[in-house]
């Protein structure tokens, strides 16, 4: 039943009661976990949307000084794409019962993520040694804040990933693991998407016009 239909029923009416009685009810843990992840992703989406909006709002001022470019971010982006691909492979494998391939995909996904985080750390170091580095420059401070928050979300994901990896050796419940792998994959794809938006809009040069158009300011 669609949300609009559901909101327009008349629960006090006799006929409607017969339909309502058919609601099966009950708790289904897999569905609950999936929904919880979606709700959480909505919260994370709001967080990063606000940061992008704040960044673009600040960019519109005349005294804006763009942050120096850090070319390492391109390599990091590639590594994060690889981690997402690896988790997609793990999901594909577990759905077809190929447990060994799933393990490889999972481990590769985690490893690429750790490499990405290390790469981001190196990017921080690189920026800090540049001539134009100045923490009072909002562009630079935003760079550290946004990449830091994105990295923190990946670190949180690694905790869930670690719990999943710990479960896939010896005898284990494939159905439960399958869901964990699926949830990890969705989370990684989402954070990759967030990163591509952040990287593309904020850290690849001066995209002020695009941003202002997106925000409806220009």
């Amino acid at each position: 039943m669609g949300i609009f239909h559901e909101l327009t029923v008349k629960p006090w009416a006799t006929d409607q009661g017969k339909v309502d009685d058919l609601h099966a009810g009950g708790t289904s843990p897999p569905a609950a976990r999936k929904l919880a992840l979606r709700v959480f992703l909505a919260v994370v989406a709001v967080l990063f949307t606000l940061l992008v909006t704040a960044y673009s709002g600040r960019m519109a001022y005349e005294d804006w000084r763009p942050a120096p470019q850090v070319s390492l971010l391109w390599a990091n982006t590639l590594v994060l794409i690889l981690s997402s691909v690896a988790l997609q492979w793990a999901q594909y494998s577990v759905r077809r019962g190929r447990i060994d391939a799933m393990r490889v995909g999972l481990l590769a996904g985690g490893t690429f993520t750790v490499v990405f985080l290390f790469g981001q750390f190196l990017a921080w170091r690189q920026l800090a040694t540049m001539v134009y580095f100045e923490l009072t420059n909002p562009a630079i401070a935003f760079f550290y804040l946004i990449t830091g928050l994105h990295g923190a979300h990946l670190l949180g994901g690694l905790v869930a990933w670690g719990r999943t990896v710990a479960r896939v050796w010896g005898d284990f419940d494939v159905a439960k693991t399958r869901q964990s792998v699926e949830l990890c994959t969705v989370y990684w794809h989402f954070l990759l998407l967030v990163w591509l938006v952040l990287f593309g809009l904020l850290f690849t040069g001066n995209n002020l016009d695009v941003l202002l158009k997106l925000c409806g300011i220009r």
Partner: peptide, 22 residues
């Protein structure tokens, strides 16, 4: 946020038989 996820998911997923949203 931890609590909030619980409240939303419980309302959407754990309603007993016959307990429609309306």
């Amino acid at each position: 946020t931890m609590g909030g996820l619980n409240y939303v998911v419980t309302v959407l997923q754990a309603r007993t038989r016959g307990m429609t949203m309306m």
